[in-house]
Amino acid sequence: MTTTARPRARAAELARRQAAGREARRRRLVMWTGALVVVGLLAAIAVAVASASRGDGTAVATGEVTAPAHATADGVVGVGRDDAPVTVSVFFDYLCPFCGRFEAANGAELERLVDSGRARVELHPLAFLDAQSDGTSYSSRTANALATVADGAPDRVLAFHQGLFRQQPEEGTRGLTDQQIADIARDADVPDAVVDRFGDRTFVPWIADVTERAFASGISGTPTVLVDGSAFSSGDLYTAGPLTEAVEAAAAAR
């Protein structure tokens, strides 16, 4: 009996050891593969972070800061008479959906106030939503186009501004093409010579600069509307009326 049991026990012992060895090998394989994958991914993340913080992003300013004629260094594109009693400042980004709603509610009112000489509107085009137009930097492209119009055809600024908001694209889309932006400008009677300069992106660095200044000065989002320098927060920005009333009250107080 012992003569048959011993080889059998030895065989079982051998099989057990082989199985344990196989298990250990597989465990090591999983561990090393896992370690490789993790190290690879960590390296990829490090590279992505490094390249992002170096700022090789799409429309980040690279050139010299040149302000358009008829605009101030701190980013104002003015519309209306300099001697108007009240100044309305509007900070916006052409991709910001709430700015579109503000414009839809109050654009015509502001135009009326400007035309009647009761108010001067100071447009502050900002570009901080570039990341949300699927890589096309819509905010910078449109803000640059507005600055170019301010530079070359200042009396067409308001019409072009309104045209851009009338066709405002949704966030997360590629936005309007350069061609479509040019068409809006032509529809607003901006001369071809000015429209042809949109593609130069001359004022993109200026836009980046004024965006940074606006936020450094305490503007925390868009739309922000100031009446004679103080925040208009007494009423609803998204219905026509309250803003006009505030402007007219300020004008009457003069």
Partner: peptide, 27 residues
């Protein structure tokens, strides 16, 4: 672990510019 790291990578690739925006504008 790989899955979670892939998520991090996707967010950095998609939003890196915006996440590190202040540095990017300065640079």
């Amino acid at each position: 672990v790989a899955w979670l790291l892939l998520l991090v990578l996707a967010v950095v690739l998609r939003y890196g510019d915006a996440l590190f925006a202040p540095a990017a504008v300065q640079g």
